[in-house]
C-alpha cells in the first residue's frame, strides 16, 4: 500500500491505496463520492471527468498514487441542492439533463472552461465540451446551458 495525501474538494485527505488502483475507484468505492460516473472506462466518454490542479482529466485513466500532492475537484465539490453552481443552475434552467449520467462530467468541463475563460465563444465552448459524450439526445441544450452560465456570470 502507498500513502497518498491530496486536497479533495478543498478538504485535506490522506489514505492508503494500491499502486494499480484507479482514482475513479478510490473516489467511488473508498470515499463514497458516487457523482463521478464510470461510463466507458477507457477515456472516451468523459463521464468520470474530475478536475486535477485546474485541468480536466478522465479519472478512469489516472492511478491513485499519481494524485499525491494534487488538488482535486469532483462534482460533489462544485455545488449542492441548496447552493448550486451557476453551471448547474443553467443546466436546470435550459433542461440540459436527460438521464443525467453524463451531467457531472459535463458540469465539470463547463465549470473549468468558465473558470479560465469567463466569456468563451461558441467554438471554445464546443472544444471544451468535446471530451464529454451524451448518448440520450443532442448537445444543443448542453451547449446552450454553458452559454447561459457564461452570460449569467457577466453580471
Amino acid at each position: 500500500m502507498i500513502e497518498i495525501k491530496f486536497v479533495l474538494n478543498n478538504k485535506p485527505c490522506a489514505l492508503n491505496v494500491e499502486a494499480n488502483e484507479r482514482l475513479l475507484d478510490v473516489l467511488r468505492n473508498r470515499l463514497g463520492l458516487m457523482g463521478t460516473k464510470e461510463g466507458c472506462g477507457e477515456g472516451e466518454c468523459g463521464a468520470c471527468t474530475v478536475i486535477i490542479d485546474g485541468k480536466t482529466v478522465n479519472s478512469c485513466l489516472v492511478l491513485a498514487p499519481q494524485v499525491d500532492g494534487c488538488q482535486i475537484t469532483t462534482i460533489e465539490g462544485v455545488g449542492n441542492r441548496q447552493s448550486p453552481h451557476p453551471v448547474q443552475k443553467a443546466f436546470v434552467q435550459v433542461g440540459a439533463v436527460q438521464c443525467g449520467f453524463c451531467t457531472p462530467g459535463m458540469v465539470l468541463s463547463a465549470k473549468n472552461l468558465l473558470d479560465k475563460n469567463p466569456q468563451p465563444n461558441d467554438k471554445e465552448i464546443g472544444v471544451a465540451m468535446s471530451g464529454n459524450l451524451c448518448r440520450c439526445t443532442g448537445y444543443d441544450k448542453i451547449l446552450r446551458a454553458v452559454k447561459l452560465a457564461a452570460e449569467e456570470g457577466k453580471g
Partner: peptide
C-alpha cells in the same frame, strides 16, 4: 489529438 481530458494527461 483525443479530447481536452486526454490532451491534459
Amino acid at each position: 489529438m483525443g479530447s481536452p481530458q486526454i490532451r491534459n494527461q
